[in-house]
Design a protein around this nucleic acid. Structure first.
Lengths: 118, 118
DNA sequence: CCTGAACCTGACGTCAACGTGAGATACGAG
DNA sequence: CTCGTATCTCACGTTGACGTCAGGTTCAGG
């Protein structure tokens, strides 16, 4: 599969895929002409990378954790980092939940009676 | 209260407070000598700003919504934006929850038996 | 009056995850 | 062989929320 097709399938840009390779998050074989050629598993991998990015992990962290995420084998240090990140995400969820509750309360109050003309 | 004290109390940097003023998120009186002088309510306001930033709102969005958040009075457009932001946060929480579940599963699998020496 | 800490206004630096050309090469159909 | 589209490698631009440095001013205590 070439880069354009992988981009369309995964929903990320061609530029992003090249960036992932530059960051060593994703590798590719090359055609004799030098164009990237991805195996089918690349699709899952890209989606996983997006998930981790969406969770707020940096590319540096992702590149450290990807091996054990995909192979299931980890060093104690990697295991440590995994739990650190999981806890960070949990804390972030708490923050967001608080913020959502705040906004919802504001909406309640405003909806009640205080909507005003422009 | 001067800027250094507000910074210490709120836990944000002096630079950040000046930035908030630049973005019209926070105003200040001035001493005859030109130094910023904040009322006590500024502390709550800074914390609110931090909350909204933490929720992923941009300063532009915050400056639009702050009036109704603090006064409880909104135009229909503001009400709209409020719900948009609340829903965005809700969606983000979903994403994070998925990512957390993923990481937790990886941790489970790894913890089982596959921890390896460095 | 003096001094050190705190404050002031620019204005440029940072960092991550790409966006956006520029100019050249590869691929597939006809 | 040709043409159009896809892809390649630099390499600089973008965005947001500040960090940081420079050079000068204000404030409070002694």
């Amino acid at each position: 599969m070439r880069i354009g097709q992988l981009a369309r399938r995964s929903g990320v840009s061609v530029r992003a895929l090249r960036y992932y390779e530059e960051q060593r998050l994703l590798e590719s074989a090359r055609t004799p002409g030098g164009q990237r050629d991805y195996p089918d598993e690349a699709l899952e991998r890209v989606q996983l990378i997006q998930d981790l990015f969406a969770a707020g992990l940096s590319s540096r962290t992702v590149v450290e954790l990807l091996p054990c995420v995909s192979t299931g084998v980890a060093t104690p240090a990697m295991l440590d980092q995994l739990t650190v990140e999981r806890d960070r995400i949990a804390a972030r969820i708490q923050d967001l939940t608080r913020a959502k509750t705040n906004l919802a309360r504001v909406i309640e109050n405003v909806t009640a009676a205080n909507v005003v003309q422009d």
